[in-house]
Amino acid sequence: MLSEKARQEIRTLCQQYPSHQSGLLAALYVAQQEYGGWLPPEALDEVATLMGLPATYVASAASFYTMFHRKPVGHHRIEVCTNISCSLLGADHLLAYLSRKLGIQVGETTPDGQFTLLEVECLGSCGTAPVIKIDDQYYENLTEEKVDHILDRITTGKGRAS
């Protein structure tokens, strides 16, 4: 169940647009945060009811964006861009490397619940390809060594590495 605070936030969002539909992405974002980083069907239903939109429409919108997760995700989400520029500069290798390193396939979460590996579209940072995004942080001009270093810092709790 969404907290009253989240519900209120979504109601306010509805008021900010001429049609409720326009506030949907922001509302889904609120819900996702409340539900621990993903959107279970109940969350979609709740948002739909709050906003007076068909539940199927809400689910469909959520499924379009890689930023919305329809399965539980790990503590950290590693989003690997595999769009053109990144691909040309080896994103596929990077993705395969991460998959081997973490021992999971794309879309899966490590058994300890730490990492979810995801493949996403252009992150808008083509100039510094290949790029991955971990949680809210961009990591650019990546190589396998850099990836090792970044993951080390995260797992050892040293936080972000630039």
Partner: peptide, 20 residues
């Protein structure tokens, strides 16, 4: 409104609300 497009690009599918 019980059917919609899910996913994106080459992966787009017709589907219903999950499990419904």
């Amino acid at each position: 409104h019980e059917l919609d497009l899910f996913g994106r690009g080459a992966d787009t599918r017709i589907d219903t609300f999950p499990g419904r």
